[in-house]
Amino acid sequence: MSDRIEVMKTYKTYVGGKFPRSESGKTYPIKDSSGSVIANACRCTRKDVRDAMLPARSAFGDWSGRSGYNRGQILYRIAEMLEGRKEQFVSELELTGKKTKEAQKEVELSIDRLVYYAGWTDKYPQVFGTINPVASQHFNFTAPEPAGVVAIISTDNSPLLSIVSQVAPVIAGGNTCVVLASETNPLVVVSFGEVLNSSDVPGGVVNILTGFREEILDHLTKHMDVNAVFNSVDDQKTRKLIDLNASISVKRVHHYPVSDWYDDKHENPYLILEFQESKTTWHPAGV
């Protein structure tokens, strides 16, 4: 009797609350730390970027209009669901070459970071909003409002913790996002999409694409429906391309190169503020 050949899983994308395959039907192999092929991931194209933008833009109105308290509940629910699937994520991180203790630490810190940002959703408007002194007979208020659709460019190191550290502050502030997952370690990112799908997160709030960065980055960052870019890839060619594309349509860009995602400086309400616009309202005094 011949040895059985294992059926490898093909990890699909996560777009609009569903799990479609790439429009092209192409996949690429994902290898473990020893170089063995362990799964396939979708090789997304320009068409997949366009398809992800539609639900991201459609979901923005509802998501940004929800109360901060409700968004906090949903982020906390993501943490609850991730806690329940901790063993799966530890196993997937071990395939990337991490030791068991390090993998457990990454998953647990990812859960804690979600809880951290869940706690800020109904507090940051009061912290960063102001009542402005003016000379005329008016009340003048400034309050933060979400920027819109954010393109998130993820790194290859600490794939789960990095994506949580970028997605959490973006959606905590009422934005929606399209994520370009790690090229070499996308498995836990797509599995995180499965967690989102079962965590009360409305379809379209978080959309996840996989594939080769050089094939997708240009299309993603020049798309006119993208209002801001959150980039953690510390590569001059990547930064230059993002800055050039952002200058054409005046997108907000936040380059955030990170060597250590475990540092607690990434639990920071100013990361929420990076993707907020300041809205000022005038109201006549005494009316």
Rank of each mutant, 00 (worst) to 15 (best):
S2P: 14
I5L: 10
M8T: 13
K9C: 13
Y11C: 07
V15G: 04
G17P: 05
K18M: 15
K18C: 15
P20Q: 02
E23D: 11
S24I: 06
D32I: 03
S33A: 15
S34Q: 13
G35Y: 09
N40A: 13
A41R: 02
C42V: 13
C44W: 06
R46T: 10
D48T: 07
D48K: 03
V49P: 00
M53Y: 06
M53W: 02
R57S: 13
S58N: 11
A59R: 00
A59M: 01
G61D: 07
D62P: 02
W63A: 01
R66W: 08
R66N: 03
S67E: 13
S67T: 15
G68I: 07
G68M: 09
Y69C: 10
N70C: 12
R71Y: 05
G72R: 00
Q73G: 11
Q73Y: 12
L75F: 04
A79F: 02
E80Y: 09
G84P: 01
K86C: 09
K86W: 05
E87T: 01
F89Q: 00
F89L: 00
S91F: 08
S91I: 08
S91E: 12
S91L: 08
E92T: 04
L93Y: 05
E94F: 09
T100C: 05
E102K: 11
V107R: 00
S110H: 05
R113P: 00
L114D: 01
G119D: 03
G119H: 04
W120G: 00
V127P: 06
N132W: 10
N132G: 09
P133G: 11
V134F: 15
Q137W: 12
H138M: 12
H138F: 15
F141Q: 05
F141N: 01
T142L: 08
E145H: 09
A147N: 08
A147M: 11
V149F: 02
V150N: 00
I153K: 00
T155L: 02
T155A: 10
N157H: 15
P159V: 08
L161G: 06
Q166S: 13
A168E: 03
I171N: 02
G173I: 08
G173K: 02
V179D: 06
A181W: 02
E183K: 08
V188C: 10
V188A: 08
V189Q: 15
F192Q: 08
S198W: 05
V205W: 04
V205N: 06
V206P: 03
T210Y: 05
G211S: 09
D218Y: 12
D218H: 12
T221H: 04
T221R: 01
K222T: 12
K222A: 14
M224Y: 14
A228L: 03
V229C: 05
D234W: 06
D235G: 08
R239S: 11
A246T: 01
A246Q: 02
S249G: 10
V250L: 13
K251M: 06
K251T: 06
H254L: 13
H254G: 04
V258S: 04
D263T: 10
D264Y: 11
K265T: 10
H266C: 01
N268D: 12
P269H: 09
P269M: 07
P269Y: 06
L273R: 10
L273K: 11
E274D: 14
F275W: 03
F275I: 01
F275T: 00
S278D: 10
H283Q: 14
H283K: 14
A285M: 09
A285E: 12
